[in-house]
Design a protein around this nucleic acid. Sequence first.
DNA 1: GCTACATCCTCTAGCGGCTAGAGGTTCAAG
DNA 2: CTTGAACCTCTAGCCGCTAGAGGATGTAGC
Lengths: 138, 138
Amino acid sequence: MSLTIGELSRKTEVKIPTIRYYEQIGLLAEPTRTEGQQRRYRPEDVRRLNFIRHARELGFEVEAIRQLLGLAGDPDRCCGEVHDITKAHLDEVKDKIARLTALRDELEAMVTCDHRQISECRIIEVLADHRKCHNTQH
Amino acid sequence: MSLTIGELSRKTEVKIPTIRYYEQIGLLAEPTRTEGQQRRYRPEDVRRLNFIRHARELGFEVEAIRQLLGLAGDPDRCCGEVHDITKAHLDEVKDKIARLTALRDELEAMVTCDHRQISECRIIEVLADHRKCHNTQH
DNA sequence: GCTACATCCTCTAGCGGCTAGAGGTTCAAG
DNA sequence: CTTGAACCTCTAGCCGCTAGAGGATGTAGC
């Protein structure tokens, strides 16, 4: 009924050192051990680790996941805090997209350079002189 | 005529420990020193550090910057390689935007949850069960 | 020349989120 | 009982900085 760390790893697609790391930082509880000190996991641990993995894939930071896991364990509570954490994360993602989009536009403008000599290369020019940027944000 | 590290820092808006770090990893050449071992910089160093800072702001990795600096020092060369490095970086940026956009859409769908109990919260549900994602990419 | 003190120096450690490797032990199948 | 895959702990490394301890230097004013 119990799983080795390797089996847990295969079921969740989380690498073994990562599982041990999550235990170390307290995201996963310490599992029971065999007499020889090998870890043995229960189905509950599979669910918890899947939750963690999925949240990481969605870009939540470990601290946020720690909070989400705490809240998830309290079924009667109102999910306002969960909503807030997710909203805050969403705002950060939007922010990142905005910054990367500006970056993309700048780089697109730069790569129009058509293989001249370095001394006339638009890319080098822009890098060397900030004022030649279209986007003056940064 | 020569600048202290503090003056260089103010002129380029690069923090002092970062300047020393760039020297350590070989992005900046070792400057001359006073008898008491304090660093003294020339105007050339200001230009080089500005280049580095700008490239970092545009998201280039240190290794890429190292290459760009090498190429920039050779004015007669064709800038094909510069173009390639920039294009590769641009592609990565585009990739990141695509992934973050999918993420954003997923999170947007999740935050529609209207403050129910945790046990019915859409966010918790989605996190706990991957199949409830709209985006099945990840 | 002397004092005060801002600025500089080196060195080490920490951030986040893992990942890799050394060197040794345990488990389960045959 | 032997084999060998899988496990264990511990340490160090990745990136690009950033912070702090503890001490030395440089410069301005007297």
